[in-house]
């Protein structure tokens, strides 16, 4: 029976582990909406959104090995580059466009954000916070580029060419005229950190920033 099979695959999927921050993002998405996950990896989030929230969720991923794995799991994922391939999508094709832990690695973050809010009503963006106290302490006391779980590559080989802090991101949204509908700071496990009301504290203690944006 189709219903039974869908339920079975839902259960199978729920048992599958997903990154905690992806779970938080999934909770921000209204059931049944159209979602594009940019840098979707093996497609864990879009699979979750389809199976548990009935979303029309699709993915874009740069790494061909991950794309192949996602498609082989039945997920609608295509190989493409956030920097160059968003231009092909029509205006307002999605309700949400998601970009997790990728903004710092794109070549032109400003243009990518502009494209995201052209093709979608809302943009959900997460990034590792370069303002975290531990990074600041490493630079201040050690005098060298910080190394942490998120910032774990040497400066000369890191793909993270555009690091920013939570406060930097607030400034950017203001300058670009984006409305911050929601924001959260996450700890290093990806759980919600309790700095909701105080951006300065979030900027010091949040390991990641998570924002929901829309155009004014």
């Amino acid at each position: 029976m189709p219903d039974g099979s869908l339920r079975a695959s839902r259960q199978a999927h729920a048992a599958h582990h997903m990154r905690v921050d992806l779970q938080l993002i999934a909770d921000l998405v209204k059931p049944g909406s159209r979602v594009l996950d940019i840098g979707c990896g093996d497609g864990a989030l879009i699979g979750h959104l389809f199976h548990t929230r009935g979303c029309d969720a699709r993915g874009l991923e740069l790494d061909m090995a991950l794309v192949t794995r996602a498609v082989a799991h039945g997920l609608p994922v295509m190989q493409g580059d956030a920097d160059t391939d968003l231009v092909y999508y029509p205006d307002q094709a999605f309700d949400y466009v998601v970009l997790t832990r990728t903004l710092q690695a794109v070549e032109r973050p400003l243009e990518v954000l502009q494209q995201m809010l052209r093709i979608s009503t809302r943009a959900i963006v997460s990034f590792p916070n370069f303002g975290h106290w531990y990074l600041r302490a490493q630079l201040l006391l050690g005098g060298r580029m910080p190394m942490t779980k998120s910032w774990n590559r040497m400066w000369y080989e890191t793909p993270n060419i555009h690091p920013c802090t939570i406060q930097d991101f607030f400034d950017l949204c203001k300058a670009e005229g984006y409305v911050v509908e929601q924001w959260l700071a996450l700890d290093d496990e990806g759980h919600r950190a309790p700095w909701r009301r105080f951006p300065q504290l979030a900027n010091l203690f949040g390991e990641q920033g998570l924002f929901v944006l829309r155009r004014r």
């Binding site: 794309v67 192949t68 498609v71 609608p76 994922v77 295509m78 493409g80 092909y88 029509p90």
Partner: peptide, 18 residues
């Protein structure tokens, strides 16, 4: 073809096999 399809907001998977 992929780019034309996404201009039409189609549901597209695309893989280049090595």
């Amino acid at each position: 073809v992929v780019n034309a399809l996404i201009r039409g907001a189609a549901n597209v998977s695309f893989v280049e096999i090595m």
